[in-house]
Nucleic acid binder design. Structure first.
Length: 706
DNA sequence: TTAGGGTTAG
């Protein structure tokens, strides 16, 4: 209708009055189209409006209308239509606005390379770049971590004299940060003459993303000292930084700050608080907060699920997922990723398969990350055949370093050190460069598989492949040497390491001293550990074990008193056995499990049988200063023995018994299971911490038990 | 005559 009126008016436009009528009609037409475009949310309607504007010629006279169509086309997944419209608009004068609009549409919808291509055309044309151009282009560089292109744009910013614009500067800080060049971002930030809230937040976020939470929080303090008040975006980053740093008081303070400033109305703040509490280890507080939230979105659910898994409460995550199914939020690939890792943590192949089916049935898109997570789950659950066949299903060009790492780590943790080494060699032959995770996995594989010389060689390879050894790599090599009995070589390694040894390094040495009964080095390791981790009960228990094994009961008593004074409790051992779809758990000396009496009887019968076959109880595996007969009795009721006994009672002989323990399997149980696997001709698979022990025919796959 | 920079699960 408007268009036919336009022709009518144009036809009568032969005097001044007619011209005025035309002018006011065009104005009202523009307003009309403007409103129409703002409310348009259908591609078909958009195409109609586009066609009307083109046939009326208005498209060339009102660039802001063309701009809206360009933005909407790109948003609706039609960037080609947007670009063709952009190419066909003919303005009398060069129009930076339209160029910026097209660049912005590309950048905001993930078309990074098109953004840069158009920017490059713009630079070479006579269209002038302005302060609006750069933030879009920098965003595109940031999204793909294109640091070289980002630096070229930075050069352009300086050359064109727009380096003092507060928007451009914030975008530069963000670009450097997202490209991993935090210090360069800081330099831009320091050279700014005016810093507003967004620039401060960009820099705080940069430190948080670079896992430099201390610097993020120092900057946050400084910002407040300069009189700027945080907004909800700032608080999200601050909450993440506190989560990385840990600390209950700080977390409470951030939560309080959010309440006082009414930031909790913003869902992203609430979500970041869930993650913050969970990362600080306060999963109960996270759950309370989550439960009290009036509105929850998918990220709230995923944050809580992930919080449980991070804190080793994978079963809680699975229970929460049941609640999620009744909510309005539908699981996405991130939910699947979290749940698959929960199954991996539990070592439950049954559950893992269930989730794999759920992912397929629920049409959840499996990307490379989720595929790798599924592979990892199968590997951790001991199903290496499925893991390897999934690996083979990935197109060779799409196998990334993580895919290789998962297999190396999978074979390694199951005691197949040689197989892990084969994959380590193969990945290099295929031109994939091992990273720090590859080396942690391969060193651990050598340790678990008793391949000491190969392990030494891999450690030496690190510098050849320019991977700098980190503290965790030293922990692996100390563990490997220590378990193999080269205690003094391990100790020398610690003394010579160029980094400060942490608790895992000294912990590896302490464990080795426990294995090989070395009180002297054990005390050195323990004293370091008591300084580094005074609240960690496990180290006191290990040292007590060393003393107990050499009958130093006075020292055992002293350590126990220490623990008592500090309010530390020996971590409770817990073992889980999966029987079909049921999961049964046992504590040490469990008298709570409904079947405990019959399980005790079975365990006593087992003990008598294996003794006849030559099993000798390792009495050093109990802490107590009691008669040997009582000690032996105590050994029987270790959680893993109860779980295995239950498995023998309840499963068919051809089925493998799969038990997962939260702490390391004790030496006595390790030896007992060899005998049980022999006498009962049963396959027994025990998972402790991050290693598996496959018992069959009287032997174990691992070579790192004494 | 219209446009711009910093945020949460993985």
């Amino acid at each position: 209708m408007y268009i036919s009126r336009a022709y009518h008016i144009t036809a009568s436009c032969h005097n001044a009055k007619g011209m005025r009528r035309l002018g006011s009609f065009l104005d009202s037409t523009e307003t009309f189209y403007d409103k129409l475009l703002k409310s348009c949310d259908l591609l078909a309607s958009l195409k109609q409006i586009h066609s009307s504007l083109t046939s009326s010629g208005l498209i060339n006279q009102a660039p802001h209308l063309g701009a809206q169509i360009i933005i909407k086309y790109t948003k609706y997944g039609e960037p080609k239509n947007a670009r063709s419209l952009f190419n066909n608009i003919h303005n009398d004068k060069p129009n930076s606005f339209l160029w910026n609009t097209m660049i912005r549409a590309y950048a905001n919808n993930g078309h990074c390379f098109e953004t840069l291509e158009l920017y490059s055309l713009m630079r070479r044309s006579d269209i002038s770049l302005n302060t609006y151009t750069f933030p879009f282009v920098l965003k595109a560089c940031a999204s793909e971590s294109l640091i070289l292109e980002g630096k070229v744009v930075h050069g352009d910013v300086i050359r064109t004299g727009f380096h003092s614009d507060v928007y451009v500067e914030a975008a530069l800080v963000d670009m450097y940060s997202k490209c991993g060049q935090t210090n360069d971002g800081r330099q831009v930030f320091d050279e700014m003459s005016i810093r507003d809230l967004v620039s401060w937040t960009a820099m705080i976020t940069a430190y948080e993303q670079a896992e430099r939470p201390k610097e993020a929080l120092i900057l946050f303090q400084k910002m407040q000292q300069e009189g700027l008040l945080a907004d909800s975006v700032t608080i999200v980053s601050v909450a993440s930084a506190v989560g990385q740093l840990g600390g209950a008081t700080k977390a409470q303070a951030v939560h309080g700050y959010a309440i006082c400033n009414a930031f909790l109305e913003d869902l992203s703040v609430g979500n970041s608080i869930i993650a913050m509490y969970a990362k600080c280890g306060n999963v109960e507080q996270a759950r309370m907060f989550f439960g009290a939230m009036r509105a929850k979105d998918l990220i709230s659910w995923n944050s809580m699920l992930s919080g449980y898994v991070q804190n080793g409460q994978a079963s809680e995550a699975l229970l929460l997922f049941e609640e999620m199914k009744d909510s309005e939020c539908k699981p996405n690939p991130v939910t699947a990723l979290i749940l698959v890792s929960a199954c991996a943590y539990l070592g439950s192949r049954e559950l893992g398969r269930k989730f794999h089916d759920f992912v397929i049935g629920g049409n959840i898109k499996i990307d490379a990350t989720l595929w790798n997570a599924l592979m990892d789950m199968y590997a951790k659950c001991g199903d290496l055949d499925t893991a390897e066949s999934m690996f083979n299903d990935i197109h060779p060009s799409e196998r990334n370093v993580s895919s290789w790492n998962i297999l190396i780590s999978g074979y390694g943790m199951h005691g197949h050190g040689q197989k892990a080494l084969e994959f380590f060699t193969r990945m290099q032959e295929k031109g994939i460069k091992p990273d720090h995770i590859t080396f942690t996995s391969i060193l651990s594989a050598c340790s678990h598989g008793g391949l000491i010389d190969e392990g030494r060689k891999c450690f030496a390879d690190m510098s050849k492949l320019s991977v700098k050894p980190e503290v965790k790599h030293y922990a692996c090599i100390v563990d490997m040497l220590g378990r193999a009995g080269s205690l003094y070589e391990a100790f020398d390694m610690i003394r010579q390491m160029p980094l400060l040894p942490n608790d895992s390094v000294w912990g590896a040495l302490l464990l080795a001293c426990r294995i090989h009964g070395n009180t002297e080095l054990g005390e050195i390791a323990a004293n370091n550990l008591f300084q580094l981790e005074p609240e960690h009960a496990g180290y006191y228990v290990l040292m007590s074990n060393i003393y107990a094994a050499s009958n130093k009961w006075q020292e055992v008593g002293r350590l126990r008193q220490d623990m008592k004074n500090k309010g530390l409790k020996k971590p409770a051992a817990f073992s889980v056995i999966e029987l079909g779809k049921e999961i049964h758990g046992f504590h040490t000396a469990d008298q709570v499990n409904t079947h405990w009496k019959e399980v005790y009887r079975k365990v006593e019968i087992l003990a008598a049988e294996i003794k006849m076959a030559g099993y000798v109880p390792d009495l050093s595996c109990t802490l107590h200063d009691v008669e040997d007969e009582d000690k032996e009795q105590m050994l029987y009721y270790h959680s893993e023995k109860l779980a295995v006994a239950y498995g023998i009672m309840k499963t068919d002989p051809e089925i493998a018994i799969r038990v997962t323990k939260n702490l390391r399997v004790c030496n006595d149980c390790h030896s007992a299971f060899k005998f049980i696997s022999y006498i009962y001709r049963r396959k027994i698979i025990i998972r402790d911490a991050n290693r598996f022990h496959h018992f069959e025919g009287g032997t174990c796959s691992c070579k790192d038990y004494w």
